[in-house]
Design a protein around this nucleic acid. Structure first.
Length: 463
DNA sequence: TGAAATGTTGGGGCG
DNA sequence: ACGCCCCAACATTTC
């Protein structure tokens, strides 16, 4: 009789198109394990919003396994210690997992491989790390050539359905409730009910988006419309694979799906940066940025975090993030630009806030996004790009619907007035019940002055 | 996956 | 009717 096989679940919480599950099931009876490790990642331990998601996603996977006659074994600790214990208790001879890119994930893998037969499989990304290269085997640092080269390797292998699994007798498990992943006092997750974590929820989101994917190229910039996929947390947790997304959308819309699939390409690209530059989350790609004159401004940072900057589009985005664990990507760019340009606050402060508040927090995507906005990445543009928050608001939320949803105290302002209430005459403000500095903040910085200050800060890097 | 400054053009008011 | 000017609208350049 074949020896038991451990499936070490990480950010790959699915049963279909999951190479570790498939390989383990083919080799012997399966012991399915999830290890909650807050020690190895250090400051990059899973953030508060994502812990909520993790709770529900692990619960969904456990339920799916139970329905197949199995179980999910839950343990807190360091995988390099926990998995050998489970192997000893079950007689398992091998551990199967999907290969990950984060530095702490690699450290976990190394520690497990030191003591057990660790079999790493691909499938968390469209292409394995290092498979997309220029002539000479050089890996890309700039997205567009990376994407063109990746496209030549597409489509990805067709996803396989969940295999038949024979389960080994599971060792004792901790209970999910003991992990205290959900917020209690206060319970701030009321607005998170827009999400359905888990493999089934991921496929429901994919199916819904497939019907709309042709509208994505245009609609993705309109935060008031539901025309983005909202797949990011599902992809991050691995409830669905990028290959599954590729095949579903390409069969639904053919090449009309490419503008969206390009974003999945960005995810691969970001993972490639983490794989090549493990400190991309904290170290600017351009060394001159080490001496950028950031402001230490805790009051301004708090105003940004709580959606009280006085710029309605920024505040709407930050409040959507706080309430739902997610922010529309167009608004992420506007809000992030505001923090690092208008407030001159260190991009890593914003990055850490997003890490704690986003359900889709992902080391590669988050680091790449913040370095892109800062202009500190190795691929950054040669000029200083300062988003004009009012201009962006008028362009992408012209009717103010997004602002009205998340900044209700401005809801009664006319469309033309809602983007910059400090420029509105007193009678209009009074008619809408708005008292600046009372019911809604005055802008914490003047745009023109803040823009000039930011340009000077960037210019100082060139001396 | 910008914004602001600068340049160009064409319609309309007006002497 | 014509030329001139203003300026909005659009395009290009520059940071």
């Amino acid at each position: 009789m074949a020896a038991a096989q451990i499936v070490w679940f990480r950010n790959d919480l699915r049963l279909a198109a999951q190479a570790a599950v498939r390989a383990a099931a083919a080799a012997g009876p399966v012991v399915a394990v999830y290890v909650l490790d807050d020690a190895t990642p250090g400051e990059w331990r899973i953030g508060a919003a994502q812990r909520w998601w993790l709770h529900h996603s692990v619960a969904a996977l456990a339920a799916d396994l139970r329905a197949m006659g199995g179980a999910l074994v839950l343990r807190r600790g360091v995988p390099g210690d926990v998995l050998p214990e489970i192997a000893a208790a079950t007689g398992a001879t091998a551990v199967h997992a999907l290969r990950a890119v984060e530095p702490w994930a690699k450290a976990q893998e190394a520690a497990v491989a030191e003591r057990l037969d660790l079999r790493l499989h691909d499938g968390a990304y469209l292409a394995p790390q290092g498979a997309v290269t220029a002539g000479g085997g050089k890996r890309y640092r700039i997205f567009t050539p990376f994407w063109n080269a990746l496209l030549k390797q597409m489509p990805p292998p067709p996803p396989a359905p969940a295999p038949m699994i024979r389960f080994a007798a599971p060792p004792p498990s901790e209970t999910l409730a003991d992990w205290h992943l959900l917020p209690t006092k206060p319970d701030w997750a009321g607005g998170f009910n827009v999400w359905t974590p888990g493999e089934a929820g991921a496929h429901a989101a994919l199916d819904a988006f497939a019907a709309n994917v042709r509208a994505y190229d245009h609609g993705r910039n309109l935060p008031a419309e539901a025309l983005t996929s909202r797949l990011s947390p599902h992809l991050h947790m691995g409830e669905i694979s990028p290959a599954q997304v590729w095949h579903a959308l390409h069969s639904a819309a053919g090449d009309h799906a490419l503008p969206f699939l390009r974003e999945i390409g960005w995810r691969d690209f970001a993972a490639g940066l983490v794989d090549q530059f493990p400190d991309v989350a904290t170290v600017p790609g351009r060394s001159a940025f080490a001496r950028f004159p950031h402001r230490d401004a805790p009051y301004d940072l708090a105003a940004w975090q709580r959606g009280r900057t006085g710029y309605p589009i920024v505040d709407a985005g930050m409040r959507q993030l706080w309430a739902t664990g997610w922010m529309h990507n167009r608004v992420r760019m506007i809000a992030a630009s505001f923090l690092v340009k208008h407030l001159l606050i260190d991009w890593r402060c914003g990055e850490r806030w997003f890490w704690d508040t986003l359900v889709d927090a992902d080391l590669g995507n988050n680091s790449l996004g913040w370095q892109w906005i800062m202009g500190s990445g190795v691929d950054s543009s040669p000029f200083t790009r300062i988003f004009a928050p009012v201009g962006q608001s008028e362009k992408f939320d012209a009717a103010g619907r997004y602002i009205r949803e998340w900044v209700p105290e401005l809801a009664k302002l006319p469309d033309a007035a809602i983007h910059a209430p400090w420029q509105v005459d007193a009678a209009t403000l009074a008619a809408a019940g708005v008292r600046l500095g009372d019911t809604y903040p005055k802008p914490i910085v003047d745009h023109a002055a803040a823009r000039a200050r930011a340009l000077a800060a960037y210019a100082s890097l060139r001396t």
